[in-house]
Design a protein around this nucleic acid. Structure first.
Lengths: 347, 347
DNA sequence: CTGAAAGCGCTTACAG
DNA sequence: CTGAAAGCGCTTACAG
């Protein structure tokens, strides 16, 4: 009786949400649902005029596809999962933003997981996210549990690793050599004529360790390596911690004349602590940071640091993942984006 | 013929993924799929021994529910959408972490959207996320387009607003009064005997503006308001910008004796710039920040600031949203978590 | 407390 | 180039 309601078909038990469906768009355009589906997805093999009609119908009705239905039917989601060890480090925020910028135009939703530098948490996160049948995976570094590795492998989901370069050189990765960055840092300080060099790292994540390894290697080569000048702590990296460790180091080893910090926040804390205690940088002790955070160049004195291409890493890793998802050929699995030594006032 | 494969039913065209389904769990446990579903979801009305059998079957087979199928059948996802204006500000990272910590144990997936302080981008994000049929919405502040507002309203999805308090007092919100925080800042500086007070804010987001309003109000009341001492810029807040604006302000108004910054990064930049130019803080000019970022207490001199409860805001907003989702009564729509003036060396 | 049937809104696989 | 049928893997609504 009620006009306008008569075209409702198979809606017996009425579990419908009221939102516009593909069926309604198809009816509005006068085509079958499957044609509407193909037209909206931009599949070839649909007559151009039909595509137009369907598009207009969709616009007119304000149709937005139901991602759950799409995922269920096609057995694949529009999700891409990114796992990072921390959100407190600007480094990873920059990477995430870049990834987002690349994925968004492709209609891919970025699911962000933060595992807080915890291998078990990473495994749990991955297990959960895999149930979403993601199109791709973006993981940070290579330090993870064996079963996480198997999980990734068994899933068959394309995966790109960020930040580090795969020592085995078999996995798709975009980053730079952490070891060489550490070496470069040490060499720079040695060239400045420093003899008593220290390395201070927090978090004890693999990249911090690798940087330390490069650093050690360079010092051993120069014949001035002293293991007691390596200060590593599992505590989280922060400005406060940097100041604290700086104070302790100088108290225990007054002859230290250069310090390389595993992250800029630590180095910034050291600079502030030096300022507070009248320790002259770089005259008495040179300070070198890592990552070159935006604020580092404004420190007093301006912090020397190693600039890492985290934005480029996020972008390129995302592009690379897109290639893998779409089955495009990738020439080499490894993409080394390098790093840049920024010499300013503190070293 | 092949044993073990004979129980495959209605798998004619074989679109199955190979992953373990509810059907298999049910068969393994010797119950119907629907009973298995109910058992796994912890619905009452299932015999305890059946629940056990189903749970064991699920464990044995490594069953993980397909979120897409669940969402499609139940017409609701396990997603909660959070929209923040920025990820560059530690403030929002802390909020997000807290939200995550609350939602995770409830099996709710947090989808994060960053609208970069752009109202149109927020609207676009929301429109997209709404297609996911989220269980709840967590939005930042009250400054948005009219159609975004209508979108939220029309969706019927429970929503809690963070950071600000609703001027209309009708919406669910968890935060503190930005205006009162600005007033508190100004009063503190006035009590210190300062007369020529400036306000420096970046980003021009509503909260920065509201803080400025409170500040202005207090100054007018004290009879020392000077509009030329209000420096507002749409540029993004950063340490570098803080130093720059500090320098300009003192060049144009050498008699300024106190500055309130809309965010700590600006204030930190000012402190560093002062240090570099031999301007004594707080003797010549007092500096007060906002948010009390972790590094602020280590600045030289230690930065006074207004500590904002962003972790608590995230937590309480998430809890509140959980209440709304589960239809629990909420006593008052507004939750004022306040703020705390941290007086250190710079003021 | 348990289950057979139907349906959620899409896409795949098969025909024409 | 287009479509009717079936199915993705769950849950709702209805019976018993």
């Amino acid at each position: 009786m009620t006009a306008g309601n008569s075209d409702r078909k198979h809606r017996r038990t009425s579990r419908a949400t009221g939102r516009v469906t593909l069926d309604q768009v198809a009816r509005h355009a006068g085509v079958s649902p499957i044609t509407a589906s193909r037209a909206l997805r931009g599949l070839a093999s649909v007559a151009p005029d039909l595509v137009d009609r369907v598009r207009q119908a969709a616009d007119a009705l304000g149709y937005v596809a139901n991602p759950a239905a799409r995922a269920l039917a096609s057995q694949q989601s529009q999700n891409v999962v990114v796992l990072v060890p921390s959100l407190g480090n600007q480094l990873f925020i920059d990477m995430l933003e870049a990834i987002h910028a690349v994925m968004q135009p492709h209609g891919l939703e970025v699911l962000i997981g933060n595992h807080h530098y915890d291998r078990d948490e990473e495994e749990k996160l991955l297990r959960n996210y895999l149930s979403y049948q993601p199109r791709g995976l973006l993981l940070t570094g290579f330090d993870r549990t064996e079963s996480t590795r198997r999980l990734v492998e068994a899933s068959g989901v394309p995966c790109v690793y960020m930040m580090d370069l795969d020592p085995g050189a078999g996995l798709h990765c975009v980053g730079f050599s952490q070891v060489r960055a550490g070496e470069t840092a040490a060499r720079h300080l040695l060239q400045r004529g420093r003899k008593r060099l220290a390395y201070v790292g927090a978090q004890l994540d693999q990249r911090t360790l690798l940087r330390g390894e490069g650093y050690r290697r360079a010092l051993q080569q120069a014949g001035c390596y002293d293991p007691s000048l390596e200060v590593l702590t599992a505590r989280a990296s922060s400005v406060g911690l940097g100041g604290e460790l700086f104070g302790q180091l100088l108290a225990n080893h007054p002859d230290v004349d250069a310090i390389f910090f595993g992250n800029d926040d630590l180095a910034q804390g050291a600079l502030l602590e030096a300022l507070r205690n009248g320790i002259r940088v770089p005259e008495q002790v040179a300070v070198l940071g890592f990552n070159d955070l935006p604020s580092s160049q404004f420190m007093v004195p301006r912090l020397s640091s190693i600039r890492t291409p985290r934005k480029a890493i996020g972008m390129q890793a995302a592009e690379r993942l897109l290639d893998l998802i779409h089955g495009r050929m990738v020439d080499a699995p490894m993409l080394d984006l390098g790093f840049e030594l920024m010499v300013r006032e503190s070293s």
